[in-house]
Every structure is written in structure tokens, then in C-alpha cells.
Write a protein that binds this DNA or RNA. Structure first.
Lengths: 151, 151
DNA sequence: CTATATTGGTTCAATATCGCACTAAAGGGG
DNA sequence: CCCCTTTAGTGCGATATTGAACCAATATAG
């Protein structure tokens, strides 16, 4: 590829995805209390949706981040009283992460606070287009996930 | 939204986008020399494609990052001899960022190194689907960009 | 059972991100 | 001109990310 060529399709897709990710993350973080950022919300949301009591390592795998990053993120949530760590009764090695009431409440409040923006997007943007791209994005994500070691 | 509902469509789309962004960034960074990460490539690539001599502030706006982040990224590129900073001849305040030969060469080499992965993706994945989603992603990115202050 | 390998988690250090505060240069009334 | 606002860039501090090294608990091989 020279500088004159249009970038390859795949390249363009990842480029747009990168920008959208950044802009949407900024929107999310605008609705989070000081000291908390997107990964904190990601963990809270995961624990609500999948059920709490998960281990840090399981979540590190779910989010595809190094375990040290998850340690740090969970520690931040503990510091803010949004989750609790307990020893895993099934073994003496791993731990479990449990939501506190404050954690559940904060997650719900953030979603409620953002809903007007989602509604505006739904008004201004042809939602059927999002419906169309979602399965392709999912397929692409799964492809990457499966080929993580080779790609 | 309660924890029982499926998350709203928009939410799911951003979720997939976030994961894909992370996985593709990891792939890119696997092809970068030690000490350089995705934002460094982003700037090199931008300077090749749009033309060098751009100012740090213009690039901060292009990438939608705070100017302090761009200062830091450009400083890293300077330290590695991939770009040069020059005073802007049009005013006494701003600066210009120019590629060095090493910068051009590195950017080209990274793209060449990644091309087998792109080709495999093109083989394994139905590329016409990417063709279909690209305009929607672009539209979504533009929507966010335009509503950055309100959303 | 013992030795070794694997696994979950933390600590530490290097680097990244970004808000705040600051300086210097422009630009715009008056 | 002078004052005031805006703009580009930097320094600094707080927090984030992540690889390397480490520890403790398990699992496995012999």
C-alpha cells in the first residue's frame, strides 16, 4: 500500500471501529462518578448480567485483559465499595467478586442516566442499520477471539 | 433495563465494537517494535496518508484525544527518531511534525508485516460483509463526532 | 508421597492517559 | 498601543495498563 492508495477495506473497518470505541467510551465515562472509568463499569455490568461471584481470572479472560489489569480494576471497585472480594469456597487459591448494593445501584443509575442519549441516537439514526451490522460485528469478534493466538 | 432483559441494541453494538477494538489493537501492537504502541502507529500512518507537517493540535483533534496525550505520543516518536518537530513558519506558536525516513520505513514495514493476517482474514471471512458494514460504521462515527458536545 | 508443573493472584516498575495549571503567542476591541 | 480572550504547547500529578517476577495452592507424573 502506498500513500496514494485508499487503505484496504479491513484497515478502514478497524479504523472506524477504533474511533467509535473511543468516542463511545468518552460518552460512558462522562456519566461515571469521578475516579471510575469504563473498565469499572464493564466489570459492574458483567457481574449484574452474568451473575456475581465470578473470579477475577474468569473476568480477565472474559474481557481479554491481562490478569494484572483485572486485579487493578477490581481493587478500584473495592476501594469505592462497589464490590467485595471473598475467598472462593471451592478452593483455597482463587477469590470471588460480589456486588454490593452500592455497586448494583450505581450500575443501574449510570444506565438510566445514559438512556436519553440512547433514545436520541435511536431517533436520529436509522436503527435498522445497527440491527444489520450487529451480527457481522459479533462474527468478527468471534473470529478474532478464536484466532487470537495465530492472528 | 433490568438484569433480565437483553441489553438494548445500541448497547450490544458498542460492546462488540469495544471488544473488536481491543483485539485488533493487540494484533497491531504485536507487530510494533518494543516501546511503540498503537497510538504511535496511528500518528505515523496519519502523517503518511494526510501528509506530514501537521501540528500536534490538529492531530489531537483528528484522533479526538486530549492535547496532552498527543504531546506525549509525539514525544515518544521523536525519541525513537521517527518524526521531527519544527517550528511552524506560519506562526511563532505552533509546531509541525515531520516524518523522518525511519518513520516512513517503519510504517511501511508494519503494514507489510501485517498483510498476511489481513489476507487470512480475507480468506476466512466473508469480506462482502465488511463492505456492507463499513458505511454504517462511518455514519455512526460521523454522528458521534457531530454530537460530541451533546451526547 | 514427593517432585514438578500449572494456576490464581499480587507486587513492582515502566510507560500511558489525561486533567489542571501554566507560559507564550495571537487576535480583537477600545 | 494596552487589556482581555483565545490558542498551542508543556510540566506535573493522579491514575491506568501491562510485563516480569514472585508466592501460595493445586494438579500431575513418577
Amino acid at each position: 500500500m502506498t500513500s496514494q492508495d485508499a487503505p484496504p477495506l479491513v484497515f478502514q473497518v478497524f479504523n472506524e471501529i477504533g474511533i467509535i470505541e473511543q468516542l463511545s467510551r468518552t460518552v460512558l465515562e462522562a456519566h461515571m462518578p469521578k475516579g471510575l472509568i469504563a473498565p469499572h463499569f464493564g466489570v459492574l455490568n458483567h457481574l449484574v448480567r452474568v451473575g456475581d461471584g465470578s473470579t477475577p481470572m474468569a473476568m480477565a479472560r472474559a474481557f481479554q485483559v491481562p490478569k494484572t489489569s483485572m486485579t487493578h480494576t477490581v481493587a478500584g471497585l473495592v476501594k469505592h465499595g462497589l464490590v467485595e472480594m471473598r475467598p472462593n469456597p471451592e478452593d483455597g487459591l482463587s477469590k470471588q467478586v460480589w456486588l454490593t448494593e452500592a455497586g448494583r445501584t450505581l450500575r443501574a443509575r449510570i444506565i438510566i442516566d445514559m438512556s436519553p442519549q440512547f433514545e436520541r441516537l435511536a431517533r436520529d439514526f436509522d436503527i435498522s442499520k445497527l440491527q444489520d451490522i450487529l451480527p457481522v460485528l459479533t462474527e468478527l469478534r468471534i473470529y478474532f477471539d478464536e484466532n487470537r493466538n495465530r492472528v
